[in-house]
């Protein structure tokens, strides 16, 4: 691993900016910084969002597991619980449909001039994040730690090497994409 590169603070902030610019460029070119495209996905009429996400996941998954194998990367799976992933996930879903952008694409939408994203979306997300920070001590014990499974990964759950699990998962996702194309979606 490039630990010396990782430890240089100023360099890392610059790296974040450059990688973010590439990300924003790609999101805009993919059309997913548009309200119409995101709502189209949630109405199951336009599958652009899913196509972008699944091809990113397949490419990323194969690459990251290979890079880990050769010692160039390490995994950072997030911890989770039923109380965080399910309750938080559903709340996020409500926001996803009502706002029509997500925290990454809303920044991209602002970049292409969308003012509902800036004056409504970004402000709302900041308020929502602030509300969570205020509620956090009260939510932590009773809800967030419910059904805690920690930093569990699918290979750990199945007790199989990750290099083996990536194969059927990739195949499954590719089949899903082929099915979408075949169905003309």
């Amino acid at each position: 691993m490039l630990t010396t590169v990782h430890s240089k603070k100023g360099l890392q902030l610059t790296m974040g900016l450059i990688l973010g610019m590439l990300f924003g460029f790609l999101l805009q070119k993919g059309g997913v910084t548009n309200y119409d495209v995101i709502i189209g996905q949630l109405l199951l009429a336009d599958f652009t969002v899913l196509k972008v996400m699944l091809s990113a996941v397949i490419t990323g998954m194969l690459g990251i597991h290979f890079l880990r194998r050769i010692g160039l990367a390490q995994l950072h799976p997030k911890p989770g619980s039923v109380g965080t992933s399910v309750v938080g996930g559903l709340l996020f879903g409500v926001g996803f449909a009502v706002l029509g952008y997500c925290p990454g694409t809303v920044a991209g939408a602002v970049g292409q001039g969308y003012l509902d994203a800036l004056c409504g979306g970004v402000v709302g997300i900041l308020v929502g994040a602030g509300i969570f920070a205020a509620l956090y001590p009260k939510l932590n014990q009773p809800i967030l730690s419910r059904g805690d499974f920690g930093e569990l990964t699918l290979p750990q759950m199945l007790k199989l090497p990750a290099e083996i699990v990536v194969v059927p998962v990739s195949v499954l996702l590719i089949v899903l994409l082929l099915f979408l194309e075949k169905a003309g979606l």
């Binding site: 996941v57 997030k78 996930g89 009502v98 409504g120």
Partner: peptide, 27 residues
């Protein structure tokens, strides 16, 4: 919608990028 999204993203500990792409690709 933004309030729900900000609240939900921090509640779930991630968003469409952090969970939807990075979390899923790490399995």
């Amino acid at each position: 919608g933004g309030i729900f999204m900000g609240l939900g993203a921090r509640w779930a500990g991630g968003c469409t990028s952090g969970h939807g792409i990075s979390g899923t690709l790490q399995l």
